Amino acid sequence: MQTFTSYDGTTIAYRVWEAPADAPTVVLHHGFASSATGNWVVTGVVDALTAAGRRVVAIDARGHGDSQKHHDPAYYGEDAMARDLVGLFDLLGLDRVDLVGYSMGGVVALVTAAAGRRVRRLVVGGIGASAAEQGGVDRNSLVGAALIEALLTDDPSSISDERALGFRMFAEATGADRKSLAAQARASRHTPIGLARIKVPALVLAGVDDWLATRPHVLSSALPDGRCKVLAGDHLTVVRNPEFAAAIVAFLAD
């Protein structure tokens, strides 16, 4: 694990898997309450990409994994995370990248691709119509106040929102800093992303039973060169579906 200091002094952790291929580096950004290891390593995505000869870089988002954990929402939001990504591109001298993001990381990837010209191909998973209609993760399916309360309460038995409870249980299972996650939940992005500016080929991946990635075709249709693939699984399990990694590898190699 390596680290760098981002634009506001936050320490950001990342990992690199080297490969001799001439193709652009694949950069991976994980989802909420997860990490580079949890989202990409244990699911087999990194192995699939390196087996295909690709150099891979995976970041731990601020507040997650081995990156610095603030408890002030002013340090968070997908725009801040997109700036961290650009800082990593600069650090590693990456002029062209293939960018892959999941859930929260999918929003970060969209923001990054819309704001710059370094992305050659884009894959986003775990998000659907909400990214086009709300500018972020679906706040209708997961109410922010319920999620924040579920993350901060000392009594998990008091959580009545089943979806918020699921994230609380996931955070505990991954050993996440719940106060950092609550700060990110308060700062999450819900303003238009500017999808029309993303001219590069883009793939939207979603689990058929993912309640946070409903109507993914709406997102792919909002992207000038977008396409959509729906796979077996829900928000937590689709990333472990071997077809998920295979779809990423095939699309980035096309």
Rank of each mutant, 00 (worst) to 15 (best):
F4Q: 14
S6E: 01
Y7I: 05
Y7G: 09
A13H: 04
R15P: 10
R15H: 14
W17F: 10
A19V: 01
T25S: 11
L28G: 12
L28A: 09
F32W: 13
A33F: 04
A48P: 06
T50R: 12
A51D: 04
A51I: 09
A52S: 07
V56C: 13
V56I: 12
A58I: 12
I59E: 08
G63E: 03
H64W: 08
D66Q: 00
Q68D: 02
Y75A: 09
Y75L: 11
Y76D: 03
R83P: 03
G87T: 04
F89L: 14
G93E: 02
G93I: 01
D95P: 00
D98I: 08
G101H: 13
A109Y: 13
L110K: 00
G116Y: 10
R118T: 05
G125Y: 07
G135E: 02
V143L: 02
I148L: 03
I148V: 02
D154V: 03
S157I: 03
S158A: 13
F167H: 08
M169T: 11
A173Y: 07
R178T: 13
A182C: 09
A185T: 04
A187V: 06
I198S: 07
K199Y: 11
V200Y: 14
V200Q: 00
W211N: 14
T214G: 07
R215N: 12
L223S: 08
R227I: 09
C228W: 13
K229M: 05
V230T: 02
V230F: 06
G233L: 02
T237D: 04
V239D: 04
N241G: 08
A246P: 00
V249W: 07
F251P: 11
